[in-house]
Amino acid sequence: MALSLEYFAKETASNLWRNRVMGLAAVLTVAVSLSLVGTSLLLRQAVNRQVSQFGANTSLAIFVNPSATTQQQADIRSTISQTPQITHCTFLNHEQSYEQAKRVLASAPAAVSVLTPATTPTVFGGQLSNPADATTLMATFQGVPGVYMATSPVQSIHVLEQVTNVLQVVLIVIALLLLVSSLVLILNAIRMAIFARRREVSVMKLVGATNWFIRVPFMLEGLVQGLLGSAVAVFVVLLANLGVGYLVHRYHVSVLSSTVLPAHDVLMTELIVVLVGAVVGVAGSTVAVRRFLDV
């Protein structure tokens, strides 16, 4: 048995080396394809985190034009209280609003420097009973006299989700096409390995080697090609994640802060990448062995 393991290792290694050009093509295709799969999985998780972080925030902010009259302010306040979809309402005066702006814009001191308490709009903050109403309410309040702007994070979250959905479908389709090509490339690499080994194979059959014994080195070759491809992809995914983390840190891009995933999520993604690589390698070589190795 120990000898068999050594034999398999030697055969597989020599097959891989003999077949290195075809093998490289297969490995690289697997790598590109799985990098796409991995990053698209990371993207999906990042967006999900963003959504769950902001999703609970069903607020509506109504900024009052600094030049609005007291009457207009009172009208806005009463409109809010007469709108049943808004459950809870708070008011930030100029001072409070200025403090909040300083906090939110901490990473952009230049923007804060042009603000003074007097020029910072006062804000009515409302909570929505149903996030779906955000768009209608924003439009309604936009039309009320004295309102500078009505915003809700609910809407931008919605847009973000839709963009991600489309992007992810595109990435997955490309990745699937590439996975199919890598399967075909592995299949072809193994077919060539079998052809190169036809003398050995015929001797093995003649002296009574079992079918499995004859097949295993070729199956291993496919598996190794798949795994090499996923190793590259694992590295790419790791780099992508580190890169985003670096950007967030270096440039304080706080909007992206939630796209830095916890180690656990990244690990799961990497596991999936490795698994898919192994499956593609084994599937490609299994088909090749069944079709071209007549044992």
């Binding site: 000898l3 093995m204 080697a209």
Partner: peptide, 9 residues
């Protein structure tokens, strides 16, 4: 080779 591929020690 003939012995190797039938798993002889």
């Amino acid at each position: 080779f003939a012995l190797e591929v039938i798993g002889r020690p």
